[in-house]
Design a protein around this nucleic acid. Structure first.
Lengths: 168, 168
DNA sequence: TTGAATTTTCAAAAAATAATGAAAGTAAAA
DNA sequence: TTTTACTTTCATTATTTTTTGAAAATTCAA
């Protein structure tokens, strides 16, 4: 396979799968393009290579910069902004995980706690069963949150040891 | 809070957050409704309580049954089908996790392996760098897959021990 | 300053996804 | 078999999400 084709396939796959990951197609494609590029790219180059509009390119880049997985790069003597992707997989994957946890887990935890408390004193059979159901979901999400936080806090060495324990 | 309101809030939250989880709003609401119901519900009851169409109700129920987190329940002397949710949180959460891994991780792993191999022999600087980038992503997803499979295979007791190791 | 280069915004259009409901399909009861 | 109760399908409609592109805003050099 030609290098160009390999890169293109990587970009296409990343874009298609991005949707499954709750990440917009264009955002995922810009990320893949920057991951596969050896040099920093400008907004115009990104627009051109992905055939997307300026608005779309700008907003996608912005989002990646906000996530902290793409950096601005100033090039001397050039007024344009250039962008490079964080190449350390563990680093950017972790940032995406943090972002997804914030979006997917945190809000549900708040509501579950609230509902568990609100149904605490219900005396009906139905009420007690519902309380129990929600409480069990809440306990599981609490455990998941604890584990997630431990992972997010750990450094690379810690993480490898923990993963090793898990695997063996 | 009234029990009815608590249940309603649970259903609404589940529906709203479902989208973040790649689960359709109606599907998530039907799941929440069945989780909070003390008795099996028919399609008509589900339609009525969630104010959704017959087609939507039928397809949402079908999907939950396919995932294996909702069961059909025959009630003697009644021709209608009734449905109950799997109430064991760990059981249904695990099934959703299996389904999401299949959808989100497996397809990307195949392509990454392919691209890693296809760029193996590239001699250019650019090609070597791209190969390395993809290879590192591939290695991480391989590790994730190994861990996920270990978790999916383990029974409840195993799991608790593993989680404990992770947390401590 | 002014003006050119660049970035950002956002209303409108397009595309993708979800929901409806009536018609077709099935299966049990009469 | 025929009727009736219920389930499934799917073309159409509605909703949500994404993308566009031109105008506004910003930034820097002259």
């Amino acid at each position: 396979m030609e290098l160009h084709d390999a890169k293109q396939q990587f970009i296409d796959t990343w874009g298609a799968l991005g949707s499954e990951w709750g990440i917009n197609k264009s955002v995922a494609q810009v990320h893949a393009l920057l991951l596969s590029a050896s040099d920093p790219l400008s907004t115009d180059e990104i627009m051109e290579k992905l055939v997307i509009s300026r608005g779309n390119a700008n907003m996608s880049i912005r989002q990646l910069v906000d996530y902290g997985i793409v950096y601005k790069k100033h090039i001397a003597g050039d007024r344009k902004e250039y962008f490079v992707a964080e190449k350390d997989v563990l680093k950017w994957a972790m940032k995406i995980a943090v972002m997804r946890k914030k979006k997917e887990l945190d809000p549900v935890m708040d509501i579950l706690k609230e509902i568990t408390q609100a149904t605490e004193d219900d005396k009906t059979e139905d009420g007690k069963a519902f309380h129990q159901t929600v409480k069990e979901i809440q306990q599981l999400t609490d455990q998941l949150e604890t584990i997630a936080n431990k992972i997010f806090q750990s450094n690379r060495a810690d993480l490898l040891i923990k993963l090793f324990k898990f695997i063996v």
